[in-house]
Design a binder for these strands. Structure first.
Lengths: 247, 247
DNA sequence: TCAAAAGTGTTATTGGTACACCCATGT
DNA sequence: ACATGGGTGTACCAATAACACTTTTGA
């Protein structure tokens, strides 16, 4: 366990010194999911550091920005083939803090020279995705790192400007809810209207009348009605649906 | 004139070698205006270079990304206090081209070592703004550079991925037309409903019925009705309006 | 036969579109 | 008085919201 931890940190140190990254540029992912009928965001925390932060990373020199975001998401969640969208780039000079950056590295027993680019100014591209948290097989990536899902109005202390990033990310998800939900893996291949409605309600944080919801969704014409689902419950069997266009 | 040109280029060279910029990061501005009842975009061209490009620039190390965009817009158009919004960041590895970059510099008689960061990969944050082209006092900035407004469906050959940037920028402007027009300086302090409608029609590229347009706009409740305008024409005097919230 | 949950229908309201009409204004 | 362009009213249609009723299901 201790050995794992050391080797993890060694690996990270090696990666940050040897691998070629685009300096001053990072990607931060706001990964949302639905849990207990609420929209949650995934945050990471390192042992002995007060602040939580978004799963983020750096962009390799030979890697598209979008690719970098996909890779980072994969590294954090082992989720592949996920619909990920850029929503805003955060570029305030003082958005990161030297002290906090050092604390982060100290918590992992990493040291870098004071003039390392890690301590300079960072511009960060924000990406967002809606995922099924039960399909996230393994995180965190490092032993002294922990991940947790947070309610948007019960966020812990966040590093840097990550609170603002989460806010903008969630606004983006809500504004683009139709495509986001359709492209997410939140629902199984086939699902009932009720399940779909629950997801909408969780993401938007408001309730709809089931009949009006059904009409509205069906009018958008991206659902395909399939066979009925007999799940053994003592009521009329609901139809199953599927998103029309294959992703 | 020749002297001016030389000194301009010298200045640019000096700036690019001495001033501290965030490497690999640029800002490109899509500046739109309305001319002949059509939405136009401002493009720049250097003598002896086939390709046109967006007014862009680099971000200083001690400058917010938003600030950089404002500064660049000011440098190009001498427009100040302009509503400028970020809409997307373009990060493909091959979005710039080494050859074209060299051509650009050659056209200005500038030489940089081959390993200069100017020739490396660039990530560019796209900003957009709607402005009154008649209020743009002076551009271009350099003598061998010319600026011109282009119809969106009659674009010339564009450098790098600037065509895509223009497209995304115009989509953003159209999607956010209400705030964009209200925040722009396209209209004078007081204006008639007809003038407002013309701007909407130019930006969206479609026509509306005046009475329905009026209803819709007034329902949004961001206009304040003022006195009537007697301009001497032989018809009923239209009301003047003003945007409610002061910008 | 009953409760639970789904499907479907009906009406009212709202927002937008099309058309019509009247009003003010300078020539 | 008249053409011009602006203001306002009304009828119509589609989308949405609110409410009601019927159907299916396993216990």
């Amino acid at each position: 366990m201790i050995n794992d931890e050391i080797s993890d940190n060694m690996r990270l140190h090696g990666v940050l010194t040897k691998e070629k990254y685009v300096k001053h540029l990072s990607v931060d992912c706001t990964i949302f999911s639905v849990q207990d009928a609420r929209l949650k965001v995934l945050l990471l925390n390192w042992q002995d550091v007060e602040y939580w932060s978004l799963p983020g990373g750096f962009v390799k020199e030979d890697e598209d920005l979008d690719e970098a975001a996909r890779r980072i998401l994969y590294e954090r969640t082992y989720l592949d083939n996920i619909f990920l969208e850029q929503f805003h780039t955060f570029g305030k000079v003082d958005r990161t803090s030297l002290k906090l950056s050092k604390d982060f590295l100290k918590a992992r027993n990493l040291t870098f020279p004071d003039d390392h680019w890690l301590f300079e100014r960072f511009i960060s591209a924000g990406y967002c995705s809606l995922v099924d948290y039960t399909q996230i097989s393994v995180f965190p990536r490092y032993n002294n790192e922990s991940g947790k899902w947070f309610d948007l109005d019960k966020l812990p202390k966040l590093a840097f400007d990550h609170k603002e990033i989460v806010k903008k990310g969630s606004e983006y998800i809500r504004k683009n809810i139709d495509t986001q939900i359709a492209a997410s893996n939140l629902l199984p291949e086939k699902f009932t209207m009720n399940e779909l409605q629950s997801v909408y309600e969780a993401v938007l944080g408001e309730n709809f009348r089931r009949n009006n919801f059904q009409r509205k969704i069906l009018a958008m014409n991206f659902l395909e009605r399939l066979e009925k689902l007999y799940d053994g419950s003592a009521n009329k069997a609901p139809y199953l649906y599927r998103f029309r266009d294959v992703r």
